[in-house]
Design a protein around this nucleic acid. Structure first.
Length: 537
RNA sequence: GCCCUCGUAGCUCAGGGGAUAGAGCGUCGGCCUCCGGAGCCGAAUGCGGGCGUUCGAAUCGCCCCGAGGGCACCA
């Protein structure tokens, strides 16, 4: 691609000029302002001091050398500001991008291989809600983030397994079972039991002879699976905490931890000295009553995941769990794992609004708006795009009324409309009997309208955007890019008629390939977000 | 008190140490003989505050202010 070619040319030029070419300092980027060229490098600024050179002079010499030895597509190289080297390219570089997008298609374009060397097996654990009730909107954000991250990792060459951890034993499950049983008998739930309306509904479904714990768990899992499925999210593994007890993995984990020498007994409890590895206090593994805390099964679970051959574990947790990161990293280190192979992505809270007014929890009944209700109200596509349009690092206000609106408050229409319009052009071409010519036979150099160039420039960015979004675990960067591309498509649609009396046939042919390429871009982006790309709305 | 995330336009949010900080909504003003006007074009308003690092800071560091979350032998 052009980026590599320009970086190589810069490196060669530095060598010729007698400057040590430090790879990390040879940067190239697309400047914000067009008069600064199509691509720009700050390498002269970055290396001048170390090389004992004047930055502007070095830039001038680089520009002269590159002008004398221009890389492909480069029309002019000049310098500006304190010492930027600016490349002005012939539009042919974008026509080359178009040919690549068409040739590689949805499956092959923008598929950077970020998996260097290892087996690339990555486990992404997300949602992992307790099987004691329905999913809530906050789970929706976690689910969309985790799924989209998994899609990004897959596209970037990793072998990804999506996993859901079920806390299907312990006091929460007991309370849940007792609450179901009480409602079944027509009694009030216990003092600290679950009070939601769903307990009443579910207990009515429950057969009289069912084991409430087992039945309730199955009922909750079925609910989670159905709601997530409605958003197009499926898991490769549903991992049961109880299975860790049954398999002896918890005892084995405790034995491993003891063998490490970082375990001690105090006050009748068994402690793990996580403070040796950066935690702010030691953690209890086994209470003085002899019961496990939740910490021990969690450690056993992550030990199990590493034991299954994953190079890397990514957990997606709600922001309220951030305090657990240090203890889990410490525990995994004690077990001999590299803490950098375990990463926790935190998603900040979602506040549900309706027309700007917060939708409050009912304290009396314990009822919230369920994720299921949210999807029913706004639709799966709008829900996913809205969750993913914003960085997971910021709190999100999710306004049901705005997201459900069939208007411009809702970006999903803007994006899907762009995709549908492109397909409408294809349908129109077929309808009026335009015979498509193979791309090799088409003169792509006719694509020089600013609207056409915009689309191509945006498409050219996609491989970098995908790689960056994956590295930074930031699927929202894909959402932003998709919206940008949709904007360029609408502009093109408005100003550049593909099928028209005023459009010469060769231009129609070139524009039809541009349309195909834009479809590829939107399809890749929407797929990474898990948002559908309908041909018509 | 300590830890995490955040503070950018009236609102919701983008913004990889680069050059004159962007988009949508909302407001105001334009554009429907042609592929879907659910669209396009134009105008106005901004980096919470301070000090540093740097040739260059919305971006990195420290302090202050503000918002949310977390600091159990609960999960």
């Amino acid at each position: 691609m052009i980026r590599d070619a320009l970086i190589e040319a810069l490196r060669d030029a530095l060598v010729v000029l007698g400057v040590d070419p430090i790879p990390e300092l040879i940067n190239i980027e697309q400047p914000a302002r067009r008069e600064h060229g199509d691509w720009s490098s700050n390498v002269a600024l970055a290396t001048a001091k170390k090389a004992g050179r004047n930055p502007r002079e070095l830039a001038q010499q680089l520009a002269e050398h590159l002008t004398a030895n221009p890389p492909a597509h480069v029309r002019q190289v000049d310098i500006a500001g304190p010492g930027f080297v600016n490349f002005h390219l012939d539009p042919s570089w974008l026509h080359a991008v178009l040919a690549i997008v068409v040739a590689e298609g949805t499956a092959g374009y923008a598929r950077p291989d970020l998996n260097a060397g290892s087996t690339g097996r990555v486990n992404v654990e997300f949602v992992s809600a307790n099987p004691t009730g329905p999913l809530h909107p906050g789970h929706g954000r976690n689910a969309c983030y985790g799924d989209s991250l998994a899609r990004l990792l897959t596209r970037c060459g990793f072998d990804v397994s999506r996993e859901y951890y079920l806390n299907d034993r312990g006091v929460q499950m007991d309370k849940f079972a007792q609450s179901l049983l009480a409602r079944k008998k027509g009694e009030d739930v216990p003092e600290d039991g679950y009070r939601g309306q769903y307990i009443i509904d579910w207990s009515a479904e429950m057969p009289a002879d069912a084991d409430p714990g087992e039945w309730g768990e199955a009922r909750a899992i079925a609910d989670h699976r159905a709601v997530l499925g409605a958003m197009g999210i499926e898991f490769d593994a549903w991992f049961s905490e109880r299975s860790l007890v049954d398999s002896g993995a918890i005892d084995a984990t405790l034995a491993d931890l003891r063998a490490s020498g970082h375990v001690y007994d105090d006050g009748g409890a068994v402690w793990l000295r996580t403070t040796d590895f950066g935690d702010d206090k030691d953690r209890v593994l086994v209470k003085s009553t002899g019961e496990f805390t939740y910490v021990l099964p969690d450690i056993a679970y992550h030990r199990d995941k590493f034991g299954r051959g994953f190079d890397r574990l990514i957990d997606v947790w709600g922001a309220d769990h951030h305090g657990y990161v240090a203890r889990m990293k410490a525990a995994l280190q004690i077990l001999g794992h590299d803490p950098d192979e375990f990463h926790v992505a935190l998603t900040q809270f979602v506040t549900l609004l309706r027309d700007g007014v917060e939708v409050k929890i009912s304290k009396r009944t314990g009822d919230l708006v369920e994720l299921r209700d949210l999807i029913d109200e706004v639709g799966a596509d709008a829900a996913r795009l809205t969750f993913l349009l914003q960085s997971a690092d910021t709190q999100q206000g999710f306004d049901l009324a705005k997201v459900a609106a069939q208007g411009m408050e809702n970006p999903v229409f803007y994006v899907q409309m762009a995709h549908a319009r492109l397909h409408a052009i294809g349908r129109k071409a077929a309808e009026v009997g335009v015979a498509r010519q193979p791309i090799d036979a088409v003169d792509l150099s006719l694509l020089v309208h600013e609207r056409e160039i915009e689309i191509l420039r945006t498409l050219a960015e996609l491989p970098d955007v995908v790689a960056l979004a994956c590295r930074e675990r930031a699927p929202h960067k894909i959402a932003t890019w998709v919206r940008d591309l949709a904007g360029t498509v609408h502009g093109f649609h408005h100003d550049c008629y593909v099928i028209s009396d005023q459009t010469p046939p060769p231009l129609t042919q070139a524009r039809l390939w541009l349309v195909d390429a834009a479809i590829v871009g939107l399809a890749i982006g929407l797929d990474l977000l898990g948002v559908s790309a309908p041909d018509a709305l």
